[in-house]
Amino acid sequence: MSAGEWPLYEVFVRGKRGLNHVHVGSLHAADDEMAVHHARDVYTRRNEGVSIWVVRADAITASSPDEKDPLFAPAGDKVYRHPTFYSVPDDVPHL
């Protein structure tokens, strides 16, 4: 980050009929409150959202691409962990 530049925030928006907040992008803002307002202006101007989360990008801890195999490859052959092995009743929503 160059001197004087506002910190980076990651933005999550929940859509009108969405059930969860989804990462939509990032922006710069001077503080948390300004980040919410900037997110409203930049990411919900096409009537997409009903709720916004913002979090400073430097507050996010991410997995490293180098760890990809040990972290994720072991799940690759465990198909039996999918719920498709069970029949889901018609009246259970959101699965």
Binding site: G15, G18, N20, V22, R46, N47, E48
Partner: peptide, 20 residues
């Protein structure tokens, strides 16, 4: 992710659109 739960039938040429 924003679109997943939307009814996009007949309107899926528009991305990240609001509805209503």
């Amino acid at each position: 992710g924003l679109l997943e739960h939307h009814d996009v039938v007949g309107d899926d040429a528009r991305w990240a659109f609001g509805t209503a």
